[in-house]
């Protein structure tokens, strides 16, 4: 658990001192606590820049644009070569591991399915000239084509048919297909949208930032609404239709019966409480509201208890670190040092 080498030990001590520095802010806002806060803000922002670069900028902007530019100058013969070698390799690849004669039969039957040329062309076209392909590197061609064919339903086991279709593909498309321009267009579209976002800082042109926001919000709302409606409204309402009388082998299960009744009444009264659009002046409305409030208070009490538990768990984790890795780890490090 503790540090194994000297540099580890330094790291653990840095972590422990920073931890104690943060805890010093409980006593007073001292120089140490402000220093540790400043370090934390700086390092975590730097981290988020790096993670965003590797997960957002590099795979979605930088690499596709660089490859598009490289692919513009690629010799057509290189393309044919790379693709032919890859498709041959996939077609020559061993079949799936079989466990019995039954599976062998199944594999043979599957491989005798009719070869769909149009589908083959569509998959090849899409895989070849999407932004992810680096045509000068055979490995990357292989990766992209392998995933494209594995996730499609095009069967490549009959090598002769496949190579024939590939020749036909290159005969039909005498030059590198123009569909790659389509893929790079959307990168430019996205980058322009993103740049419009930054105009927020320039008051005169800030109105341009409305477009990317409208686009993002529209997509988010459109994606999320149907599924949340189904899972969070429909299925939850459906789950409220529960039996009011629960039986067990010994007769009536009173706890479950009372619980189910309480669940239905509670759900209805809480929903009723949240209707603020009309006045609730009569006794029945006020009574229902009070019952709703009672249920809400019990729910909030449960949340409060769990929140205490969660926050204390984090404290426990840190003190565990201080005990095991810092104090005990340092002791063991020097104990075993000869």
């Amino acid at each position: 658990m503790g540090p194994d080498t000297f540099i580890d030990l330094i790291g653990v001590w840095i972590a422990a001192l920073l931890t104690l520095g943060v805890y010093s802010s409980l006593i007073k806002d001292t120089f140490i606590s402000k220093l540790t806060e400043a370090v934390f803000v700086g390092v975590s922002f730097g981290m988020s820049i790096v993670f965003t670069y590797y997960n957002g900028i590099k795979p979605k902007i930088e690499e596709p644009l660089v490859r598009y530019y490289q692919n513009l100058h690629v010799d057509y013969a290189t393309v044919t070569n790379a693709v032919t070698r890859t498709v041959e390799k996939i077609a020559d690849a061993k079949t799936l591991p079989v466990e019995s004669a039954v599976e062998e039969e199944l594999t043979e039957e599957i491989s005798s399915r009719a070869f769909d040329t149009n589908r083959f062309f569509a998959v090849l076209d899409s895989a070849l000239y999407k932004q992810t392909l680096k045509l000068q590197s055979t490995n990357e061609v292989a990766v992209s084509l392998q995933s494209a064919f594995a996730s499609s339903e095009v069967d490549l086991k009959d090598k002769a048919t496949v190579m024939g279709a590939l020749n036909e593909y290159f005969t039909t498309y005498k030059t590198v297909p123009t569909s790659r321009h389509f893929w790079v267009l959307y990168i430019f579209f996205s980058v322009i949208l993103g740049l419009m976002f930054i105009t927020r800082f320039f008051p005169k042109h800030a109105w341009l930032s409305r477009f990317p926001m409208a686009y993002t919000i529209g997509i988010g709302v459109g994606m999320g609404t149907p599924l949340s409606f189904q899972s969070q409204i429909m299925q939850q309402v459906q789950a409220s239709f529960i039996p009011m009388l629960v039986r067990n082998p010994n007769g009536i299960d009173w706890i479950a019966t009372a619980g189910n009744l309480s669940l239905v009444i509670g759900t209805l009264t809480v929903l009723y409480y949240f209707f603020f659009s009309f006045k609730k002046e009569d006794a029945a409305s006020r009574g229902a509201t009070k019952i709703g409030i009672a249920y809400l208070m019990i729910g909030f009490g449960a949340s409060f208890a769990f929140t205490i538990m969660a926050r204390v768990s984090l404290l426990i984790g840190r003190i565990n670190f201080l005990q095991d890795e810092w104090i005990q780890g340092t002791y063991e490090f020097f104990k075993y040092l000869n």
Partner: peptide, 25 residues
Amino acid sequence: ILNYPNNAAKRGILIGVQLGSLATS
């Protein structure tokens, strides 16, 4: 407490919030 009254309260809040977000959407 968790399976009955807490469930009722949280379900009411969940449905209410989702109805509100549906209206907002």
